[in-house]
Amino acid sequence: MGPSLLYTKISLAGSWRVSLSGQCDKIQRPMCNSASRLTIQCRLMAPEEPKNWDPDLSRLWLGFSNLTGVNFQGSGVIDGSGSKWWAASCKRNRTNPCKGAPTALTIDSSSCIRVKGLTIQNSQQMHFVISHSDSVRVSNILISAPGDSPNTDGIHISASTNVTLLNCKIGKGDDCVSIVNASSSVKMKKIYCGPGHGIRLEFSTTA
């Protein structure tokens, strides 16, 4: 098993190719002429202990922002090691305080993004958030967590446009897909959901 990754906020500029492979202890960034790529062919493990988390990054594990034309690909696994976070949830035990928890993978304020082939599992809370982004295509990914894991939404789309979800298998403890905050032009095909609460649409209206 490779080393645990505590929290990572990455901004890629220009044309980069990032490869995570083997024991996940090497990151290679050679220049290339095609679209930027981030290839994961290993298991990325988050630390298990909530107390080890930076309070300034309490809602983030792997976060990418301000990207254009980046392909996330590979057969790797992003594992949030969420069991201790779930045990501390107020939904599991009402005597616990209600707190937010990290999202396994976040793509924010980006455009022309492709995500293909990855597995995201056991997130501390939401598995995959697409926020304030345009032209995002997600295909052939697997999202998995126990059916009783609290607040573990599969794919959460917020304030984003032109998002396509294709051939995704999602099974966890909350919404398989949630679409909120004025998102538009979201297309879904061959979404396999279960266990989970299905697809949630949340619209705001003005008088």
Rank of each mutant, 00 (worst) to 15 (best):
T161V: 14
Q121W: 04
L165M: 07
D79W: 08
W86K: 08
D153G: 10
R92Y: 09
V136Y: 06
I107S: 01
S158T: 11
T119P: 02
S185M: 14
I157V: 12
S81D: 10
T103F: 02
S111N: 14
V177M: 03
K169S: 13
I120N: 03
S178A: 12
R114C: 08
A87Y: 08
N93I: 08
V115N: 04
Q121N: 06
S110Y: 00
T164N: 12
N96Q: 15
L105H: 02
Q124D: 01
L165K: 02
G173W: 01
D175M: 07
V115T: 04
A87E: 15
N96D: 05
I113A: 04
K91Q: 15
V163C: 07
D153A: 10
I170Y: 09
L105D: 00
L118M: 01
K91R: 15
I170S: 05
S139H: 07
Q125D: 12
S81K: 11
W85T: 07
D134V: 13
A87D: 15
P97S: 12
V163Y: 01
N140H: 10
A159C: 08
N181Q: 14
K189N: 11
S139C: 06
T106G: 04
H156F: 13
R94F: 07
V180W: 11
W86P: 08
V180E: 14
G147P: 03
L142F: 13
R137M: 11
V136C: 08
N122P: 05
T103E: 03
I141S: 02
S131D: 11
S160M: 10
K169V: 11
I157S: 07
D108S: 12
S131E: 12
L105M: 03
S184R: 15
V163W: 01
W86D: 10
L142V: 09
S184T: 06
D174L: 03
G80W: 06
H127K: 01
D134E: 15
R114T: 14
G173T: 00
C112L: 15
G154V: 02
A104Q: 07
V180G: 03
S149I: 01
S158N: 11
T106V: 13
L166I: 06
T103Y: 02
K169E: 13
C112R: 15
G171W: 07
R137T: 13
T161R: 15
K169Y: 10
H127Q: 04
T152F: 06
V163S: 07
S111P: 02
P146G: 04
P97N: 09
I130P: 00
I155S: 04
S160A: 13
P102Y: 00
K116F: 07
S110H: 00
T164F: 08
S144H: 12
S183D: 05
S89F: 07
